[in-house]
Design a protein around this nucleic acid. Sequence first.
DNA 1: TTGTTATTGAAAACCATTTCCATTAATAAG
DNA 2: CTTATTAATGGAAATGGTTTTCAATAACAA
Lengths: 157, 157
Amino acid sequence: MPRGNCQGQGWWHGKFRGCGYRLTTGREAILDLLSKSEGHLSAEDIYIKVHPRYPNVGLTTIYRTLDVLSNLGMVYKFDFGDGRARYELAEGPRGAHHHHHLVCTGCNRVIDYADFIDEEIELLQQTEKGLGKKYNFRINNHVIQFYGLCDKCNGKK
Amino acid sequence: MPRGNCQGQGWWHGKFRGCGYRLTTGREAILDLLSKSEGHLSAEDIYIKVHPRYPNVGLTTIYRTLDVLSNLGMVYKFDFGDGRARYELAEGPRGAHHHHHLVCTGCNRVIDYADFIDEEIELLQQTEKGLGKKYNFRINNHVIQFYGLCDKCNGKK
DNA sequence: TTGTTATTGAAAACCATTTCCATTAATAAG
DNA sequence: CTTATTAATGGAAATGGTTTTCAATAACAA
């Protein structure tokens, strides 16, 4: 059964099955948590939330599942510079609320923003198109992040 | 002597001295290499190039120096998803050639591009301004990256 | 030249993530 | 439903980039 780029439309089950992945308790629990949480969860965050209820979902499984989800395009993986990866559901059941990130390098707080997002998306799409053609790339993702100091951290000097 | 955000104009020496840092052989060697290399060097890359000529510049010093340079804003630190940080001189002696990155998730190749860069910068500046005001952030950096498959990796399926 | 102290290297510690491998369980076939 | 196949699992161990420790060194100011 095919495994590669399985970019479908449906939700969990169909997508998993269609790509030859099995639907397990752990995977459902992780997807469930992600869809109920407000973004930026680390593998450990997820473990701490999921493991008590599903004691036979280990940290290893969390990592493996996140990797699968990431490859399927169902989850985005971010690096906010604090030494651990963060994960976010790419699109909720009721459609995406696209946003980008504003990261405080002082306290590692991350703010989702959607201001100016339309202009950003517009520009990104043009750029993707142009770059894709020029460099012969099949672009399927992008990252925009701003780094700075939040008011609290800025005050502390 | 002050250590914090020392965003000056001059080049190495002045900047270092002004911030209370000492100018050492190792630091000069690292800066020298960075200014002569085309971007995206990892700490190890730098070590391999610098250590033979300066045997008493260890990997630890490389990391520490890169950290200092990064804090001074003289070097940008990037994560291209291959598990190691990459560093780039923020601005060459003859001024910056600003660019963003196009990363192949297949072979980890990184392409610098400067197409559309003017529009990107323009939008980024507007966004920075707006976000800074709205969220009370002192923004001093940004990242734009595109991820995809280069022609070779795309062909392989 | 000398005193102060930032900087250094080597080794050890750190810690997020990955790998190993024997066991378990999801799925398909009968 | 039962059984066979093999993907998935978890705990422990390994990995590997980065950071910390600490005694020795070297930049710099006096």
